[in-house]
Computed example of a mutant assay.
Amino acid sequence: MKAVAIILAAGEARRMGYPKALIEHEGGKSFLQSLASTFGKAGCSVIGVIGKDAEAVRDQHPTIHLVENERWQDSQLGSVKAGLEAAVEDGADVVLIHPVDMPALRATTLKSLIKALGDSVEGIRPEFEGAPGYPVILSRGAAERLREKDSGETLLEGALKGLQVRRIPVKDPGVVVNINTPETYERLFGSAPRPAPPPKRRGKKAEPTAAPASMEASSEGLPGT
């Protein structure tokens, strides 16, 4: 069974001051690099969907499979569909959809969620303390239906209403924590948002460190993708 993770990173991120895909998370890694590593540890192939500042994101992430949504300003769902098309073409049996500004989830959580996706439902998503989280995990059939859906919806949350998506309680706060404002970033890491260093200068020192399990959780919908 081939699992493909779609990381949504096409938005403008005006509040953060930098493209979210480029912002430093831990160990000199960007949000996008950190998530790609986590999904990779869970056995997933990774596709990043980019839009705003696409060239800069490509330069920073030469080893990640990136697809560009040239009409990223039109709707969030457009970026989702661009990722779904690439994932289906890549032979995905299972598709995971995740926003780039939620980089704190654990690989062990992903492994458990993928295992929990059975034949009885079209998809699942985690919840933490009753709040729905990400990634949204869909069967290939559900992913294809979502890709073809033309209901006038612009956001992923609205488009999911027509699918059977079951919520799975998890103990990982990373599934609901959005780092989508400078205030949230500074509260978690102790500094203003900053871009990750270029790949050739990336070091091993973990600064800032990953947010602890006690971090404040947010249950907002898919932010700024």
Rank of each mutant, 00 (worst) to 15 (best):
A87R: 10
D53N: 14
I50F: 00
R58T: 05
L113P: 01
Y134P: 05
V80G: 08
K41S: 12
T38N: 09
V49I: 08
K41V: 05
K115R: 14
P208L: 04
L156N: 01
F39A: 03
L146F: 11
D74M: 07
K149T: 10
K111W: 00
H61I: 08
A143N: 10
R106N: 07
A159P: 10
P195K: 13
P197T: 05
A159C: 08
T38M: 05
R140F: 07
N178A: 15
A143S: 12
D172Y: 07
Q73I: 09
D93F: 01
A196F: 10
V4I: 12
A5M: 01
G203T: 13
S75D: 14
L32C: 03
A10E: 09
G91L: 04
R147T: 00
D119E: 14
T225H: 12
G133L: 08
S219I: 00
L117Y: 02
E216I: 02
A211Y: 09
G141C: 12
K2H: 02
V175D: 03
P223G: 05
D74E: 14
D119V: 12
E12R: 14
I168Q: 01
A104D: 12
S45A: 15
S191L: 11
K20S: 10
T38V: 13
P182W: 04
T184V: 15
E157Q: 07
P182Y: 04
A211R: 06
A87C: 07
V175T: 10
E153L: 02
V88Y: 13
A87N: 09
A196N: 05
A196E: 04
T109I: 05
V165F: 06
E55Y: 09
I6K: 06
V80M: 08
V136I: 15
G152E: 06
S151W: 01
P62M: 06
T38F: 03
V46R: 08
R71M: 07
E183N: 11
V46P: 15
K52N: 14
I47G: 14
R125N: 10
K149H: 09
S34H: 15
G17Q: 06
K81G: 01
P199R: 05
L84K: 13
G174R: 02
D93I: 00
G190F: 03
G190V: 01
K41D: 14
S214D: 12
A87G: 11
I179C: 13
E89F: 07
G83N: 07
V170A: 05
V57K: 00
E183L: 12
A104L: 10
R145Q: 13
T225C: 11
A5Y: 00
K2F: 00
L77T: 09
G123K: 03
T63W: 14
V170M: 08
N69S: 11
G133A: 07
D59W: 15
F189W: 11
S218E: 10
R14W: 08
A92S: 04
G224H: 15
A196D: 03
P99Y: 03
Q33G: 04
E157L: 06
L110I: 00
